Amino acid sequence: MRMKEKIIRINRTLFELETGILIFGAVCQLFAFLTKDKAGYSLGLWLGILTAAVSAFHMWWSLDRALDFPEKEAVKSLSTHNILRYGFITAVLMLIAVSGRADPLAAFLGIMGLKASAYMHFITQKVSKKIYGEEDILRPAEEPVDGQKV
């Protein structure tokens, strides 16, 4: 299967979020030359970026799964998965801090790529349009009128 076909099978919003995380990581990597411990900064940053990417995928997966549940079960499921995700992020940061091999602040910066990516939506949407093509995803679905099929 070609790379473009694999990318198209991925959820478009998830693709845009992951693309933004990678762009954020690349921009932050440019500042590695300003630090004393360039290797520690880079390692911490990319471990944070990886954590953000895994968290974004988990967020998409848990939301997609919860939409199939009744309201009370969906809320419970989402709350449980939020706690698991925050626990994972905390564990990663603690392991990085204890290991001493990577910069924990750079890792935190990488994890913030998840938030930065959400703000860069207007950029990542342009990349997405080149791969997925033009699509009006904001247009509401047509609803049947008086029981008629549309």
Rank of each mutant, 00 (worst) to 15 (best):
E142F: 00
I21H: 01
L84R: 05
K129N: 11
V150T: 03
R9H: 07
L138Y: 11
A32F: 05
I7S: 02
S42D: 08
K6C: 08
D136N: 13
V54P: 08
E134R: 04
K115W: 14
G40A: 15
I89S: 01
Y132C: 09
T35E: 11
L78K: 01
L67S: 06
K6Q: 12
K6G: 04
G110H: 15
V145T: 07
E135P: 00
W60P: 01
F57G: 13
F88W: 02
A102L: 03
S117C: 10
Y86M: 06
T51H: 11
G20D: 03
V127R: 11
E135Q: 12
M1C: 06
A102E: 02
D136F: 06
F69Y: 14
G87Q: 03
P140H: 02
V150G: 00
K129G: 02
L50P: 10
M1L: 09
Y41V: 09
F88Y: 09
K76H: 12
M59T: 14
I23D: 02
I23L: 14
K38Q: 14
I83D: 00
V150P: 01
F122P: 06
A97C: 02
L22E: 00
I96F: 02
I123G: 04
A26H: 00
I8C: 01
G87L: 05
M1N: 08
G40C: 11
H121D: 12
I123W: 13
F88L: 06
D136W: 03
F24W: 11
M112L: 15
Q29V: 01
D37M: 07
A39R: 10
D68V: 05
L95G: 15
A32C: 07
E71P: 13
I21E: 00
M3C: 03
I83W: 04
F15E: 05
S77F: 14
W60V: 06
I7D: 03
K115N: 14
G147H: 09
E134Q: 07
F57C: 10
S128E: 14
L78G: 11
C28M: 13
Q29F: 09
D37K: 12
R139L: 08
A32P: 04
S77Q: 07
T51G: 14
S55M: 14
F122W: 15
V98I: 12
F31V: 05
V27T: 04
I23E: 04
M59S: 12
I23H: 04
R12V: 07
S62H: 12
M112A: 15
L109R: 08
G133M: 04
I10P: 00
G44N: 10
